[in-house]
Amino acid sequence: MMKKKLMSALLVATLVFGSITASAKSISFNISKDDGAVSVATNTKDLSGSYFQISNLDTEYSNFIEDKDVIGFKVKNSAGTTSYSAYHTFSKFVYRHSLSYTTTPSSGASLKLNAQVDSTGLFNNIKFEGEWIS
């Protein structure tokens, strides 16, 4: 009976702590259409599976306006030479919205997040605050 309880506790701890290993990278930047695509953050691939997550937070710093601003993201390798995702655009506030990789990087790979103000957006400049989980 004691072994069963110990095994159950170990399983629960593994599930709880195993799901927390992916760390959210806070991202905060000011970008304009004239900047084109720029690197805004680096991170390490630590989510299992073939997806990453983006959050766009409605904060005092952010001037992002839903349905007016459009911002795009693309994940690349640390050198910026290989794309791991397609170009994904946002016009809404999202929280940990999952996006798929086109080529899944290996666990522990160094990654770079590129951002760009999309030409379909109304405004030229976006102050963005959120998080990126890879």
Rank of each mutant, 00 (worst) to 15 (best):
A24Y: 09
V38G: 03
F128I: 00
D69M: 02
I54V: 10
I20P: 00
T42W: 03
N63K: 05
P105R: 08
N125P: 03
R96E: 15
R96A: 14
D34C: 02
A109T: 09
G121L: 10
E129V: 09
K3I: 06
Y87L: 09
S48M: 15
Y87A: 05
T44L: 07
S55R: 00
K33L: 02
T14P: 01
D67E: 13
I71S: 00
K33S: 12
E66H: 01
A22P: 12
S100A: 15
K45T: 08
N124V: 07
S83G: 07
Y87C: 02
S62H: 05
M1E: 11
S106G: 13
S106W: 04
K92M: 14
M2F: 06
T102W: 11
T102I: 14
S50K: 08
K74W: 05
F73I: 02
V16L: 15
S19T: 14
D118R: 02
L47K: 14
G18V: 11
S91Y: 01
S91N: 09
G49D: 12
K25F: 06
T21Q: 12
V117I: 00
T21L: 13
G121I: 03
M1Y: 13
T120V: 04
N30P: 06
A37N: 09
G72R: 05
L57A: 09
K76E: 00
D58F: 04
A41D: 10
